[in-house]
Design a binder for these strands. Structure first.
Lengths: 220, 220
DNA sequence: GTCTATAAGAAGATAGAC
DNA sequence: GTCTATCTTCTTATAGAC
């Protein structure tokens, strides 16, 4: 990776841990392995580094626009899957979404930086909302719409159903950002959440496989 | 209000808007109506102001321990109400909780400050989690437990049911902290969320009043 | 492109008069 | 308790050699 890119990378790490104001140009330079003045050959000033991070992030987000990386595939391809999804697959869907959000290094650092800096700039707050609230709700809402059409889920209000699916995931996500040690707890809660979600919304004759199953798992 | 207290109040306002590092001692002093050096007669240094805010907040939180101000009453008194709650009252419960969180000035400023500073100090992250995630879930879980006992709600897992009730509220809360202009939208979503929550969990013969009502509201 | 040396300015904190 | 003046330190950013 070239120096110009490494500066962005190290700066993002530091900004996400301490916030813009608490990171000194010399700190960034040190992690890159150069002295502070050298850094000014690559970027006009400290603010320009921050701006470049935001710009690159927007580029990445656009790159995967509409695609929340649920399966690494796009919506059209996903659609077929979701018409015949099972409870276990629904859990996998939630887990993958969740694990992507907390483990993808760039995403995680960027989200933490936005969390710290959001009140300095309304655009950053709006970016956070779009990326971690509005877009996931919109994308998943579409998928759940397909599941309702095909009869595997039942509801009069897909939007609220989607909220009921995603809001707990969002809450567990912010929990893990704050207290990474609670990740295991979060994953257990996730699974229980999705199983109950499935019971609540897949009550019809065409209920999702695994629903109302009374037999326990066979012993190992 | 005496000067010592006003310093805390103005500092909290500024910290919640800009974050600790971006607020200068002179800014705080100016809002209090004194010069920066005078401020050092009240607090040893800038950090001591921050610490005093945290201390006072912990005092306030303890003062209302276990009581999320849902009705300004305590849990024991609330319990009787929740055994016979109607759908409209459930909506009021959610709305009051939500409106208290976003409109109570001290609570709102303090939560925003915690949001900004949480990654500088693990204790702050833990405080946020306890106050806005764990405690609400625990308190409401107890209330919902009562409602399940009295038969007005049905579930095999009260904890997840509580998560399904609270997580959307939490999500809308963080939305309004970021984009106050979306409050009206948030309140509408809140109501739709709670009505659907009620439909999902109050299906038994003893379903909550208002459930399955098909008649529309009379015209005004 | 990287370095050393240094300018320029900001911000926290103190001294001492009133 | 509040002020003005000032000190000290830290941080950004530039100058200019290599």
């Amino acid at each position: 990776m070239d120096t110009k890119q490494r500066i962005l990378d190290e700066a993002l790490t530091l900004f996400s841990e301490k916030g813009y104001a608490n990171v000194f140009v010399a700190d960034i330079a040190e992690r890159v392995g150069i002295k502070a003045p050298s850094l000014y050959k690559h970027y006009k000033n400290k603010q320009a580094i921050f701006d470049a991070i935001i710009l690159e992030m927007n580029r990445r987000f656009l790159e995967e626009a509409g695609n929340l990386q649920i399966n690494g595939a796009n919506a059209a391809e996903d659609a077929e899957i979701y018409k015949h999804i099972s409870e276990e697959q629904l859990i996998t869907l939630g887990n993958n979404l969740f694990l992507y959000f907390i483990h993808d290094d760039y995403t995680r650092r960027f989200r933490k930086m936005l969390t710290i800096e959001q009140f300095h700039d309304k655009k950053l707050a709006a970016t956070y909302m779009k990326q971690y609230v509005d877009d996931p709700l919109s994308y998943q809402g579409m998928l759940f719409g397909l599941m309702v059409s095909s009869g595997i889920l039942q509801t009069e209000n897909v939007e609220i159903m989607t909220l009921h699916f995603y809001a707990p995931i969002y809450m567990l996500l912010t929990m893990c950002d704050r207290e990474p040690k609670r990740e295991e707890e979060a994953l257990k809660t996730m699974e229980a959440h999705i199983r109950q979600f499935n019971k609540l919304y897949a009550r019809g004759e065409t209920s999702i496989q695994g629903n109302r199953k009374q037999s326990r798992r066979s012993t190992k």
